[in-house]
Design a protein around this nucleic acid. Structure first.
Length: 462
RNA sequence: GCGCCCUUCGUCUAUCGGUUAGGACACCAGAUUUUCAUUCUGGGAAGAGGAGUUCGAUUCUCCUAGGGCGUACCA
């Protein structure tokens, strides 16, 4: 292909949020650029002014930012380059590689109907006709070859062949003079020096026609790679009912960006048996040719597994900030002593958490304000015998230093002194301390509660 | 209709003509255990179907089936 330094790009159309499939496309472009020491660029494909919104642009940038997939240059806005696009079309017109088409919408629809019935691509009669009035309303179409074939060398799928007769003469300039996507991508990718186009496989068909346009301009055709789409767990196209589509939703559901990067990279790409890998490993290993051809399904359980791993590895201070946001969103205030201890508490409680939402759940027993009612299960455990035993335990604990290790020892020796197993009073103790909310092992529960609060809760229940 | 793409355990994948078809998630069983969870050990689980090519096909070719994408003055 080319020995130029690699330039990749992500070119979203700002008509909505950043879809998870788009996020992965961006990630792959980013990884490949990093892998090769090249550049990763961003281009907003907003040639359709009707459907593009600034909110969508903001949402997409925000999503990419969160994911940590950042461009190496300022983003290009396609609509700002309309003059350049029009000039390029003039060149094509002058070279006889494009023509003005005066078909009305009605005529077009009729022609399309016929072409479809005959199973062939639509062809405008204006291909070889000169109009009596050249200034009449018209679009400019590409004049594609009628014979021969166009061959794509897809980096992922290999050779893909199209008969040129099956490719229609696409519109380059609309009736109002606005450039269309298929023209703009080619001109922009060329002008931006893009060497590798990595995009969703819904663009394979366009790739053939775009190749023809490159050739008409006499430009080098970039290397292309078409990624399979991401489907929902049931194999159908990802939609709302699958839980989430937008990367922002994944953030809200408590997933960490590094976990998303790992999971998304693993979805459709892999490096041997590696399941969990760092960003630098991903960058070192990523090859476009290793991307899998078939579409992958989103698997929430595996995402949860990966996220669990990264939560365990994450800095507790950072998790505390994240959890703070979650609690705030839930309207749960954090008392000052707890807020200060949050990183430490999270260190004690994060073991089983798969998301920051679950992490917040794990804190819920700490958030209770006493006095609180006990749940039915705990109440039933509180027989007179147990009550008496917990009362003795309370006295014992009053003299214990509230550190996890010493609490652990204290509980064990108390059980020994009582001549019973921990199972005899442990569940009741936990219930009394947590009010029935899930809580970790006893020593941790006591420790995170703190001596004052723990003894008070015990006293409340006895 | 026409064109193009895809098809290995439930899911993500490894294999690049010769393997007991490997790993991970999930699942099941057992162990540990002060709830839930965690952790540990073990287990079941796959080449869509049919023709070829070949000494030998998951791997190469073709057909069929199923799924997807495109077929716009959307991107």
């Amino acid at each position: 292909m080319s020995s130029r330094p690699v330039v990749t790009r992500f070119a979203p159309s700002p008509t909505g949020f950043l879809h998870i499939g788009g996020a992965r496309t961006a990630l792959f472009n980013f990884l490949y650029a990093r892998h090769t020491g090249g550049k990763f660029l961003l281009r907003v494909e907003d040639t359709d002014r009707e459907r593009s919104t600034p909110e969508a642009v903001a949402a997409i940038f925000e999503g990419l930012n969160w994911l940590g997939v950042t461009a190496d240059a300022e983003p290009v806005f396609q609509h700002q380059r309309a003059d350049r696009h029009r000039a390029a079309v003039e060149d094509l017109l002058a070279a006889g590689k494009a023509y003005r088409c005066y078909l009305t919408i009605e005529e077009l629809e009729k022609a399309r109907e016929i072409a479809r019935a005959e199973g062939r691509a639509i062809r405008s009669p204006w291909r070889d006709q000169t109009p009596s009035d050249p200034s009449a309303p018209h679009v400019v179409r590409f004049k594609g070859p009628l014979t021969g074939e166009t061959v794509l060398q897809d980096l992922i799928r290999g050779e893909i062949r199209f008969q040129n007769i099956d490719l229609d003469d696409l519109v380059l300039l609309r009736a109002d003079g606005a450039p269309t996507y298929n023209l703009a991508v080619v001109v922009d990718d060329h002008d931006m020096g893009v060497t590798h186009i990595i995009r969703g496989d819904d663009h394979i068909n366009n790739a053939a026609r775009q190749t023809l346009i490159y050739q008409a301009f006499g430009w080098e055709v970039p290397a292309m790679a078409h990624l399979p789409l991401i489907h929902g767990p049931d194999g159908a196209k990802l939609s709302k009912r699958h839980g989430a589509q937008a990367v922002g939703e994944f953030a809200d559901m408590g997933y960490l960006p590094e976990a998303m990067r790992n999971y998304l990279a693993r979805l459709g790409w892999g490096h041997g048996d590696s399941e969990i890998f760092s960003d630098s490993e991903a960058q070192a290993w990523f090859e476009v040719a290793d991307v899998v051809k078939s579409p992958a399904r989103l698997d929430w359980q595996k995402l949860g597994f990966i996220n669990h791993h990264y939560i365990q590895a994450a800095d507790n201070g950072r998790l505390a900030d994240l959890v703070g946001t979650v609690l705030q969103a839930r309207g749960e205030a954090l008392a000052e002593p707890l807020r200060q201890r949050l990183p430490e508490l999270i260190g004690c409680l994060k073991e089983g958490a798969k998301t920051t939402l679950e992490l917040a759940d794990a804190l819920s027993f700490l958030l209770k304000r006493r006095p609180f009612a006990l749940d039915a299960k705990t109440t039933s455990l509180l027989t007179d015998e147990t009550r008496a035993r917990l009362s003795r335990l309370r006295e014992t604990l009053a003299d214990v230093v509230f550190e996890r290790a010493s609490l652990e020892v204290a509980i064990r020796s108390f059980a020994e002194a009582e001549g019973v197993g921990i199972g005899k009073f442990g569940p009741a103790l936990r219930g009394v301390l947590s009010g029935g909310a899930p809580a970790p092992d006893l020593a941790t529960t006591l420790f995170t509660l703190g001596k004052t609060e723990a003894l008070a809760r015990l006293a409340d229940a006895l």
